[in-house]
Nucleic acid binder design. Sequence first.
RNA 1: GGGGCGGUAGCUCAAUUGGUUAGAGUUCUGGACUGUCGAUCCAGUGGUUGCGGGUUCGAGUCCCGUCCGCCUCGCCA
Length: 593
Amino acid sequence: MKRTHDCGQLRESNSGDIVVLAGWVNNFRDQGKGLAFIDLRDRGGITQVVFNLEDCDAQTVEYAHSLRREDVVAIKGVVQPRQGKANEKLSTGSIEVIGQTIEVLNRTDNPPILPDEHDGEKISEEVRLKYRYIDLRRPRMQEILRIRHLVARTTREYFDEHGFLEIETPLLIKSTPEGARDFIVPSRIYPGEWYALPQSPQIFKQILMVAGCDRYLQICKCLRDEDPRADRQAEFTQIDLELSFVDRDDILDLMEGFMRSLFKQVIDVDLGDIPRMPWSEAMERFGSDRPDLRFDLELQDISELAARTDFRVFTEALAKEDGAVKAIRVPDGAGSFSRKVTDGYNEVARAHGAGGLPTVKYTANGFETGIAKFLDGIGDDLVALLGLEPGDAVLFTADTRDIANTALGAVRLAAAADLDLIPEGRHDALWVIDFPMFKWDDDGKRWASEHHPFTAPRADQLEILESNPGKCLSDGYDFVVNGSEAGGGSIRIHDPNVQKTVFSLLNLSEEEAKSKFGFLLDALRYGAPPHGGIAFGLDRLVMLLAGTDNIRDVIAFPKTQNGGDLMSQAPGPVDMAQLEELQLSVVEKAKSD
RNA sequence: GGGGCGGUAGCUCAAUUGGUUAGAGUUCUGGACUGUCGAUCCAGUGGUUGCGGGUUCGAGUCCCGUCCGCCUCGCCA
């Protein structure tokens, strides 16, 4: 029997048609010897099939009674309007198929989990990952896989229309010193030497620009041997792009068009104008380089007022180099912030480097609790500056400007989640621009790239690149949606001399740079066009579009926090012969204690 | 590498201060039922309490170690 329709297709207009459906038995309801209902499920949906003695022989009805959940069957029958009540939960709920013939394609063992819409979300992730082939049968998972497909399809369509070529870059490449830890692959032909798997195709896509490819696109796997998070996997997918003869605004304009069509086509959301915010403003107002603009609770600088208090936490912070006191006003926070809640925020602030989180409530009687007694001299000015109303709470951080901002930024997110200030279904995007070129690495006592070592300084910043690298701004940009970094890129350095200067600021010797990136430096010497690009995190875009906060939900076969695949049991040992061929041996690490 | 939460029947969970034979729902098995749709009703199967030690008259419960899962800090150019 050949399938004629999928299980989501049939409507009342099909009444009288003879059809063949195939799929999994989602559920069955036996109603006695002569009547049985089978809910048949495939990727398209669910259709009810009914077997009874009026429409088929007793043997077939009995066969229908023997079907169990997740058996795989093909069923031939006639479409008719529902005899009983319609089921509004199903797209096919107004019809049913009168079953006439059953072909069992495969019986199932008793399944460890069921891809049931009611239980699916409750099953522990550990079991879902082990039996991923059953978990993925769930309509929700099928929906996410489809969203992911739509993202890839829309990407290829949009960039094809704008003159991009899809070009593959190698997976076995040379290890690079900057950035994340590499996954490495031993070379059989050169024993003792190693390939690295790409953290991104960065250098290759720049070389494609030197090669005259003009506009490049790739949907590619990237691999970074670092610990995962809820929104991060060691193995992930990027939408990787690079363009020649463009400036920053050309790229941002083109990518905005892409993002708008993506959100429109996949979830029918209008992103509207996408604001561009300097990095310094994002840090000052939101305490984050990826601000969530769906709610207020903006950070305010109260350093001048704080300097007039006798509160040592404030005055000692302000005595530091580039010290600051920041505050957020939490409307109606006085009532909802118990001691337990503010203690929790205190921990958040401490986890981000702040010494603590001074707190005060503002009521009809003025400031109360917490640090109220220290605010006597500045009370009215503080009320005016923050726009306080009775019932508000105020949270403070005091430290170096950087720590005060990031710690309070983290508290801002925690408070918004607690107070339910984040609107459902809303998507607020922005570009963060004018990043610093470098950040100071205190451990390594050197400058490190804020973005990556090929990011160009802004043209108007070239003169301070060497004299004041900490203040030098780059031509980099991040695309941020709902507080999640969904993409990032930059105009690249196309002048080999500027590239050399940046390498030396990163404390990369000329010799080292030559051995690691020599081929890029060479390429830049032979007629490199001005170019720039961006990479979007495809997994994170799918998360946003699908409305999940778990990256494993948007990857068909994801890995766990320990980098394992619970289904295939990777990683695993290999044969001694394989190691010998590679001239490798495993050395047991001595216990340090 | 650090911190936190968790692991009990195939699945989701319960088990009082350390105390009787570790329970419930569901899946599954058998039976009843001709319009159900998370069907219902009756009966039954199902346990290395993650694993290894220890304390105790007695451990799912306390202690030590270890493995696994999740969240998080570090890390992620």
